[in-house]
Amino acid sequence: MTAFARFDQQETWGQICWELRSVNHRYLDICIRLPDDCRRLEIKIREHIQQYLKRGKVDCTLYFQMNQNENVKLHINKTLAQQLCEATEEINKITGSSDLPNALDILRWPGVLETETVDVNTISETIIMVFQKALEQLIGHREREGAQLAGFIEQRCVAILDQVREISNELPMILQAQRERLETRLTELVEVNSERLEQEMIVLAQKMDIAEELDRIKTHIVEIRKILSENKVVGRRLDFLVQELHREANTLGAKSNHINTSHHAIELKVLIEQMREQTQNIE
């Protein structure tokens, strides 16, 4: 969801420029910066973003520059200028001063000197139109990044299934090694009782039975691939499945009593964590 877009447009009365930035976030967090005269457009712009984006922290900034026209007329707010003069006289009476503000001091006061401006109502449609073009650029960047992330996640899916396959292939060998180890220990203590040995092996096999966890991991991978193929919002669903994958890997590691299985469980956790970091970037 990391992306940047900039789109500007020149009009007869000035220039509009929109800059949009998007970074990773679990939810949709919108920050809009507008000139004071354009504040009334914030709600409409926010609603516009919500139609297209569902996740990410999105910063939107509007740069608004009026053309410098030599024929622009300056207007003096005579009422405000008169009030400033009267206020100065009142202050002088209190302080006993006789200083009066000069003309430049009064002209520098905010609001005394006014220039002709463009009515925002007449250009609001243009502002929204330019924003839409910038938003399309941002969405395009996010979609390209999303495609790359989907490829990254697919690579991790393949690696996870490879680990599951290796565990499944090694499991009979591990059980046989455990049987031989248990038989040796029992031989050292007492005469081997085949019935007792089988009972112990059944208990051991039950404790080491990780087939259910391996099946669930494979099922989650199938669902992740299915979600990635859908053309809609998938980020939160992927978050949930990755959490489930992590839970199965933890259970597998807890059940393991062989070094090979423990190594595979650790590798699974590394791959799942890499996947988790990237699913947070997908809308």
Rank of each mutant, 00 (worst) to 15 (best):
Y27R: 13
H48G: 05
L113H: 05
D37S: 13
Q163R: 06
E267N: 09
V164S: 01
D239S: 09
V164H: 02
Y52G: 07
T115G: 08
K226D: 13
I227A: 08
D209E: 10
F7M: 15
A177W: 04
I127M: 05
E273T: 05
N69I: 08
R196Y: 03
R6M: 13
R40G: 14
I43K: 11
K93Q: 15
I76H: 07
E170T: 08
Q199S: 13
V118E: 04
C17G: 04
I139V: 13
T2A: 04
T122A: 11
W13N: 03
A81L: 10
Q68L: 11
R216T: 12
P110M: 12
E183G: 04
R225Y: 07
L175W: 06
L252Y: 00
A147F: 07
G14S: 09
L197I: 13
L241G: 02
R236G: 03
R185V: 01
Q206W: 10
N250W: 03
A211M: 12
V234S: 00
E154Q: 14
Q82G: 06
L138Y: 00
I259F: 11
Q206C: 14
Q51Y: 09
E70Q: 14
L271I: 00
P110F: 08
P172A: 15
P172M: 15
Q65L: 14
Y63A: 15
F131H: 01
Q51E: 14
L252C: 05
I202V: 15
Q163D: 09
R40T: 12
M275D: 00
L62T: 00
H263E: 06
E19Y: 08
L252M: 11
Q82C: 07
E183I: 02
T95E: 08
I32Y: 04
E283L: 02
M201L: 15
D119P: 04
A205Q: 11
R276D: 01
E195Q: 11
A134I: 01
N193G: 08
E11N: 12
C38L: 10
L20Y: 01
Q243Y: 10
L41I: 08
E19L: 13
L20H: 02
L74D: 10
D8I: 10
A249T: 00
L80I: 06
H264A: 07
L74Q: 12
P35N: 06
I282P: 03
